[in-house]
Amino acid sequence: MAESTPPAPPRIFARPRRIAARRRAEALQRLPDAPHYLLDDMIEDVEERLSFLRFEPRRALVIGDWTGSLARGLRLRGVEVVEAEPASGFDEEAPYPFDGFDLIASLGTLDTVNDLPGALIHARRALAPGGMLIASFLSSGSLPRLREIMLAADADRPAARIHPMVDVRAGGQLLQRTLYADPVIDQRPLQVSFRSFERLIGDLRAQAHSSVLADPGPPLGKAALARAKAAFELAGVNGKTVETFEILTLSGWKK
């Protein structure tokens, strides 16, 4: 009997919208005072992990860092670095066009791929024996205020507006399923205060974290937008509303 073909992963995210969102973010990052605190946090975490482990890679692949700061830091340590960006055509859901890396650092991109197990497998195959993957992205528990605000804005017609996200338990299962050795799963919160609903949405767009759902909800009309702003104000204290970003980091080795 012929082997059955595994089912295709569900199409949750639209690849063209994902690429467009990242290209828009790259353009917005050229503006003065562009926000990049999420990427900064992920980069700092990668550097701290490498220092703690005393791991000195010779060749590294950095995915998703439009600031270039992680690559610069690695090069100062004598590491040969290849940089890749989904907005420039790099496809994490296909076999990599290069391999043999001692380190792959994926920053803020894997939360919007349709086939996350497949993406992790492609990354493992691109590692050299003894190589390490560090993948950080937004996870379950992120944007609780925005979720409440969007429910209030949509009133009795709630629509899909915020991405489904991976939690810690699922992250651990994914690493085991994709055959990474010595997996480590961490989640940490990053809280940011906002003075306006517009600034919250602007920061998400500037950091490529706006919606790229394949089946997005309808645009907010004038009345819904007014409800969203009112809900934002109600959630605040002393003119500031605190939003939480939960950053999940998956790390593992190729034996």
Rank of each mutant, 00 (worst) to 15 (best):
S196A: 14
A155T: 06
A119D: 04
I63F: 05
P35H: 04
L200S: 01
P95V: 09
E198I: 05
L250P: 01
R188S: 14
A21L: 03
A8Y: 02
R24T: 12
L50K: 02
A27Q: 13
A105C: 09
R49P: 00
P6M: 07
L133G: 06
K255E: 14
E198D: 15
R77Y: 01
F13E: 09
S142T: 13
P6E: 07
Q173G: 11
R59G: 01
V184K: 03
S51F: 08
W253E: 05
G131V: 07
G239V: 03
E93D: 11
A231I: 02
A206D: 07
S136Y: 01
P164Y: 11
G217L: 08
P164W: 11
Q173C: 10
A25G: 08
M132K: 08
S88R: 13
E198K: 10
D203K: 05
P9V: 06
D167K: 04
G118R: 03
I185N: 00
I247P: 00
T241A: 11
P57W: 01
W253Y: 13
A223S: 13
M132E: 04
G130H: 10
R195F: 07
F245Y: 14
I12E: 02
E92W: 03
L174N: 07
L138A: 14
L74A: 00
T178W: 04
K255Q: 14
M165H: 11
Q29M: 12
A14L: 12
F101C: 06
Y180S: 03
D156Y: 11
M150R: 07
T244W: 05
P57Q: 00
G68D: 09
S193C: 10
S51G: 08
Q187P: 00
A8S: 14
P9S: 06
L143M: 15
E80C: 08
I12A: 04
A20E: 15
S211V: 06
E92F: 03
L127G: 02
M150I: 12
S4V: 10
A2T: 09
Q176S: 13
F90R: 08
G252T: 04
E93F: 10
Q187H: 07
F52S: 12
F13P: 03
R227T: 03
I185C: 10
A208I: 09
A84H: 00
